[in-house]
Design a protein around this nucleic acid. Sequence first.
DNA 1: ATGCCTGCAAAATCTTTGCAGTAGA
DNA 2: TCTACTGCAAAGATTTTGCAGGCAT
Lengths: 151, 151
Amino acid sequence: MKKRMQTLAKKRLIDFLSDRKLRLTSQRDFILKHFLDTEGQLTAEELYELLKKRDETIGHATVYRTLRLFVNAGIARELHLGDGSVRYEADIEGIRKGYLVCSECGKRVEFSDDEMDSLGKRLSKEHGFSIDNRSVVFFGICPDCQQNGMR
Amino acid sequence: MKKRMQTLAKKRLIDFLSDRKLRLTSQRDFILKHFLDTEGQLTAEELYELLKKRDETIGHATVYRTLRLFVNAGIARELHLGDGSVRYEADIEGIRKGYLVCSECGKRVEFSDDEMDSLGKRLSKEHGFSIDNRSVVFFGICPDCQQNGMR
DNA sequence: ATGCCTGCAAAATCTTTGCAGTAGA
DNA sequence: TCTACTGCAAAGATTTTGCAGGCAT
């Protein structure tokens, strides 16, 4: 299943690239593979650091450029979870998620936000937008931080 | 009603400041007044430019620091609407909004996201978080951009 | 008077861009 | 071969921080 996701994503990337006469380079392949292997949500910087361990020669800009490419190809999703940086996660078809984020320690909990589908449809109809993405984030304080009384 | 909002926000600021032995300075008062006067959602930079017109001496950092203060005081809300910058809007009690954003031209449409309340409550119960804010954003292409076939 | 607050400028982040060489198709 | 792609470094953009003086309480 993990494997299947990898295959689908790669297929999607190849289709996207060949449609636009772009190229599947070893770097793009390498970044895709490790990006899909990660759990959770990474910043471009975090992914870069992670890749750097496996391949010293990978460039900073390449990671940024490739992540944007992945977003355009529908392979990655961009997230803003309130910590001031942009995070990316695999855009697995049919699986949309919402996030519950602790403002204190940054802890993230994912939840299914399927019930947003109908809201999306209604908004689309009401305002004539073609909707292709959404971001649902709740902010609060997690149980641990409440207990420790930090603040 | 506009007036009433101003009064409430100022009261809230004063309470927040005195609770923490912070001070109500002329700059904070000045920034609050003009921040509440603006419609829509501003970046710190936009607010700075706007304030600069009224008072040449206002400092860059002061605007950034004050907006963060407003967020902590519950007077302002921080928004990430996908254009890469942080935006702020007045946090008027009882009024929560969601946003529909055009990925092409940046056009923003606000909608009531009251139906998220129950989801928030459920998440709070399930995960033990105390939830105090949320961000609901839909991305898509607005009717105008669909017509002009930009992309 | 105390010490929080301000403006300035420099620093720190994070991200993008220009360029010369490299390598897919 | 042709031109997109890469790594590097520099530039950009946005936000934060250090500091000396100013001002609210």
